[in-house]
Design a binder for these strands. Structure first.
Lengths: 341, 341
DNA sequence: CACCTGATCCAAAGCGATTTGAATTTTGTG
DNA sequence: CACAAAATTCAAATCGCTTTGGATCAGGTG
């Protein structure tokens, strides 16, 4: 059942039916009622492609994820973010177009999406320092929201981020207050913007107390369980091992916990751990009392909000760059305690 | 730059240009060359919506994920599966349309996707026993592939699954061979088809040796870390605790490991654990020697293959229901050992 | 040389909606 | 009651592509 047929059934022109259904004012109230009734009765649903060809809007949002490097993307965090964004989209009648693209095709792909108006807007995931995608998208003139920020890019653009610097600084201060002086930072890849900021927060806290940063106490890699395990093992084998760890991801923190278990250290007693926690559905940080002391911020909620920002931006492009900085909470769990004397 | 403009530039009709670009035979070789060259030079890319309106095909595949129950979907497994499928799609020029939909809207959503030809095909995730979606989609006549199967549905349909029954039977046998007699099964929700089959495999192994299944040694819930932890704690507190666990997911197995650590049991020595392992990118089962003895099957690869099957089915609907049963491997890690005497 | 065949190319009709510009019908006013 | 204004409705153009059903033209045939 298409528009023409529906119009014929009603003895009206397609024009009027279209207007009635789309809430235009110049249509008789009674006519509108009849049209709506008939549409319901015949399960009429406009063909989105025809609609989109006519209006130029696609009612879809694009998420491009780089495929063949494993970096940052195909991960649990991504799933939760997308789930949050998807909720927002479906409430607003938008579809989500996901493209898994080889790194070298990324630029071309963005360009294609924008130029052909395949999507009305884009979410940019996992920005790197100096991320070139931002300039590209500004240039293409398509609305987009970055999940995170890109240091070094000074164009105005819309983003939603958490306060990585401050929260890592707070977490470090917390450890220092407990008397820890050697803290290992198990971070993500440091060309990722968030990792850079987290490190900066960590360093600032050390610097404020005049503690020199020991390069041996830094690790940086994709945030897998194995990365956490390997890095912790390495640091614990140092002549002067750390008494605490600050970890950038729950999954890596689990690896750290495994490393501690390997050599019989009790977390929270012999050694302290604080982790960032994205509050993933399948990886909750304990039930009542949190397992890990953690910097917590729901990435699902971030997805919801980023999507809302993007839809606002699409509805009203003049509303200028939208930015939102979420403040994670620092929650105390069972993985921290005073530094052993 | 659209088709008409490109045609004008070349002094040709849109018809010919379209045919040249789409590889139709009735166009002069030299003309085709000129057209292709010009298309490249002007970065011509056909508008997919117009194309799709004209052809009736959308070049998109739908993945519908139920939103507001947390069940099975918004999870790391999903991310990896989608990444695999996405690789296949992008190679074939397909887009992936992801909808996060409230459970009660699911049927309506599927119907909309199919009737309006929004997508050319669908992947059905996380089938339940007697899953009603299969009959619905058969009825709607849209090509689809189920990731998993649905016991109780006897319509012919296409699916890709792993051999859950057999692999869980093998894993159980392995534990029994090691002398274990009380094995706890920490399973997913048992209205999920895969969980049902895993349980059946487990039971069959017990039955074959005349061991009665103890209801206290079953746990069934969404496969979170906490589920693993809580279930293991509960079973270990029994008067006759299990000497081994069989776990349906790496994440839950990590919870089990935490439970063991809580009470000072050494995994692999005091107690054995086998887990299913989807070989997730961010949650590898150790480096050289696997941490967990595991039933391993890459869900990313499953995504790739399911997508290929679906594209085949779309290209050639007559090729009938396609089915593929993958056999997971049973890999020996450090989490199993002989039953304590 | 007239006629038939292929090989090429093109005009025009969709696909299913929106939207512009006009044509109707109603309503209001003097 | 006639006429302008407002309220409704409609025909046709448009979005950018594919595809049907001819055209056109060169080469081969009898």
């Amino acid at each position: 059942m298409n528009l023409k047929e529906l119009a014929a059934t009603l003895g009206l022109s397609p024009t009027t039916v279209s207007r009635a259904l789309n809430g235009y004012p110049e249509v008789n109230a009674e006519t509108r009622r009849r049209v709506e009734e008939a549409a319901r009765r015949f399960h009429y649903r406009p063909n989105p492609r025809a609609k989109s060809l006519a209006t130029g809007r696609s009612m879809a949002i694009g998420h491009v994820i780089p495929a063949f490097t494993q970096h940052e993307m195909v991960n649990p965090v991504f799933a939760d973010f997308v789930a949050g964004a998807g909720e927002t989209y479906s409430k607003a009648g938008y579809d989500m177009l996901l493209s898994v693209v080889a790194d070298e095709d990324e630029t071309r792909h963005y360009r294609g999406l924008a130029e052909r108006h395949t999507v009305d807007g884009l979410i940019v995931h996992a920005p790197k320092v100096d991320d070139p995608r931002i300039a590209l998208l500004c240039d293409l003139g398509i609305p987009f929201v970055v999940h995170g920020r890109a240091s070094g890019v000074d164009l105005p653009y819309s983003w939603l981020d958490i306060h990585n610097t401050r929260s890592f600084r707070r977490a470090t201060d917390f450890l220092l207050d407990l008397g820890h002086r050697r803290v290992g930072l198990i971070n993500g890849l440091e060309f990722m913007d968030f990792a850079q900021r987290r490190r900066a927060g960590f360093m600032a806290a050390l610097a404020a107390r005049g503690i020199a940063a020991d390069p041996a106490l830094f690790a940086s890699d994709p945030m897998t369980e194995i990365h956490g395990h390997r890095s912790a093992r390495r640091m614990l084998a140092l002549p002067r091992p750390p008494t605490a760890f600050l970890v950038s991801s729950m999954i890596s923190a689990i690896g750290v916990r495994r490393a501690l278990a390997d050599i019989g250290l009790r977390m929270g007693a012999d050694i302290s751990v604080i982790t960032h926690d994205d509050d993933l559905g399948y990886l909750r940080n304990g039930e009542d009392v949190p397992i890990f002391t953690a910097i917590r911020s729901s990435v699902r909620e971030a997805g919801r909000q980023a999507a809302e920002m993007l839809l606002d931006l699409i509805a009203n492009p003049a509303s200028g760059p939208l930015t939102r900085l979420l403040e994670p909470e620092l929650i105390i769990g069972q993985s921290t305690g005073p530094a052993p004397t």
